[in-house]
């Protein structure tokens, strides 16, 4: 996974938006894809960078460019999801589970079903925490909620998922 750009910069960089596109497009696209699905992800990602270009003066050095871009991408993707009246597709997991106890994983299908049953808010903090590997404050900034709420959602998401996985066939033993 690409997490090299999480280093916090302390000054507003003299950047070009193209640099951001080159560096962060894949990550932003992946994030949008996990919210909207592959069909709408490109539109959302493009809209994210166009919006970022327009709001570049609002960018503060306290957050990383990725957090700034993810915040925009989250707002755009949420709006598009609401507009399309679709549910978040969870087709971004593919099974790589093996029988080896060292690399034991929850089966992708089981995990997908469990993730589909928890609320979108809980799912989003899990995605940002476990897949994007962002810290609590960054997640809070992206979603526009207090860090305490992020922790609470994370706690409830894990508890619900564990409970669902324990009762599902092929889940936790």
């Amino acid at each position: 996974m690409m997490h090299a750009m999480t280093t916090k910069s302390r000054a507003v960089p003299d950047f070009q938006i193209e640099q951001w596109v080159e560096t962060y497009y894949s990550q932003v696209w992946g994030f949008c894809r996990r919210i909207l699905g592959p069909e709408l992800a490109s539109d959302a990602a493009q809209e994210t960078f166009v919006t970022a270009q327009r709001k570049i003066r609002d960018y503060r050095a306290e957050s990383t460019p990725r957090t700034f871009l993810y915040g925009i991408a989250w707002r755009i993707s949420s709006a598009m999801l609401r507009k399309s009246k679709r549910e978040t597709p969870i087709d971004w997991l593919e099974n790589r589970a093996t029988a080896s106890p060292e690399s034991q994983l929850i089966e992708a299908e089981v995990l997908r079903q469990a993730l589909a049953k928890i609320s979108p808010e809980h799912r989003m903090v899990l995605i940002l925490k476990e897949i994007e590997q962002l810290d609590i404050n960054e997640i809070a900034r992206i979603l526009g909620i207090p860090p305490g709420t992020v922790k609470s959602r994370l706690h409830h998401a894990c508890r619900n998922l564990r409970s669902l996985l324990q009762t599902s066939e092929g889940g936790l033993k």
């Binding site: 996974m1 596109v21 497009y25 894949s26 696209w29 992946g30 894809r33 592959p38 992800a41 490109s42 539109d43 990602a45 493009q46 087709d91 971004w92 997991l93 593919e94 099974n95 790589r96 589970a97 994983l105 929850i106 992708a108 995990l111 899990l126 995605i127 476990e130 897949i131 590997q133």
Partner: peptide, 15 residues
């Protein structure tokens, strides 16, 4: 681990 390692690798479209 299950979430991270089973994420489908897809090339970004539309860059």
């Amino acid at each position: 681990r299950s979430m991270r390692e089973q994420v489908r690798e897809e090339p970004a479209v539309g860059m």
